[in-house]
Design a protein around this nucleic acid. Sequence first.
DNA 1: CGATCAATTGAGCGCTGTCAAGGTCCGTGG
DNA 2: CCACGGACCTTGACAGCGCTCAATTGATCG
Lengths: 239, 239
Amino acid sequence: MGEGQRCQTCKVGSRPLCSVLSSIEELQPSRDTMLRRLPQGRMLLSGHRPTNWFGIIVSGVVKLMLNDPNGRQQIVGLQFPGDFIGATQSNPSPLIAEAATRVEICCFPRNMFDTLVGRVPELGRTMLMHTLGELDTARQWMVVLGNKSALERVATFLLLLEQKTRPCDATEGPGVRQEIIELPLSRTELAEYLSLSIETVSRQLKQLRSMEAIETMGRRKVRILDWATLNRLAAHEFA
Amino acid sequence: MGEGQRCQTCKVGSRPLCSVLSSIEELQPSRDTMLRRLPQGRMLLSGHRPTNWFGIIVSGVVKLMLNDPNGRQQIVGLQFPGDFIGATQSNPSPLIAEAATRVEICCFPRNMFDTLVGRVPELGRTMLMHTLGELDTARQWMVVLGNKSALERVATFLLLLEQKTRPCDATEGPGVRQEIIELPLSRTELAEYLSLSIETVSRQLKQLRSMEAIETMGRRKVRILDWATLNRLAAHEFA
DNA sequence: CGATCAATTGAGCGCTGTCAAGGTCCGTGG
DNA sequence: CCACGGACCTTGACAGCGCTCAATTGATCG
């Protein structure tokens, strides 16, 4: 893993998992915890190899991948600030995790977490709730992959991204929407996430551009112009 | 829910969740637990409505569905004997659960489960493990829906089904494979699960028949003839 | 300012969905 | 036991979406 640094002022506060973090911080304030800054592309979990740490994402995006039997890889989930990562389970999973952008993770040794769960029952419950939420997310994404057209998938992704990358303190509501979205994925990664070809992704972005629903600014930025159209295409999936 | 009956001799013993069940049985033997027999088509969870019970499937298959924004429904998971169902979470989920076949469920009141989790910490851990397993399953299915052709999906489903419906005491290995598989789903449901049209499902079954990989016996039975071909098509997904 | 890789665009085709017709299974009643 | 009806399933024809292959354009960095 490499570079590390003591975690002094964590900014994940208002995210769903804040309670876990604060529990940990209260009991063992910033001694064994550290804020790791990882470069884009760094592998965090590699298939079956066991992991002795776990952490909470503070900033950046982590992509979760599974090896397709045909050799190719598919992205099966994205983890945003506030989400868990690492050895949240003892049974090994073929899941691969990689930093999609530069990432900051608040890391803890695994045994520390285990003992904490024993001492704070609330912690285990929070973990379970979060995992059930992830399960819901995965199943909703199954519906996206199963029933939506290429254009709808791209629209859905853009809205999902906008929602997930809102500043922590922003409440729901159309007033606080960000116009300009930073894409944490390349076109190739977008294709792997949406189960499309690179070319199709490109064509759908072009189509959205010609509908004047979005405006692409370089490779990694999108400005959203027409929320109504995008919402209609995504059919209010991730409200 | 309707018909119920005290649970005397439960047969879920050797399934993954046996520990939960036995913990419950030990502490509170068969007083508030009962074995519910439900007919095919009975709805178990309906979207947002809260549920005050939970249970473990003893026999039969339960399908989990999500409403597609386009109106159609998609099956996002199947629950087999040994799996949880019901209020395993407090946060509401839009998930709908329905008996795909006649189903027997060992049911418990929700508060009983909650108190047990407080008394037996192992129980919460088991729940978390099981949920993480479900998450893995969901993500693997995402890969199936994203990258596999219609023929491969059908082959994958047949092998998955064979694996899941093996008798409890059967260990892994090719020796104990069942030749004849009972399909818990109609063609329409199969299509909803595999994200295909009914017609395509039918055509792929025909193709497998013409390859002499399977043999259909009526509408709800399949005899597997060529395991190698099926495995090759499914690419050893659910080993 | 070129070198290099990513992204876009175009042409062509195959897989799968749609629409429509025919066939099969199964419960019901004669 | 057989005839009938209706739901479920199968089969065929056809079109369209998205993938593949190939060439071009564009971005980013030395």
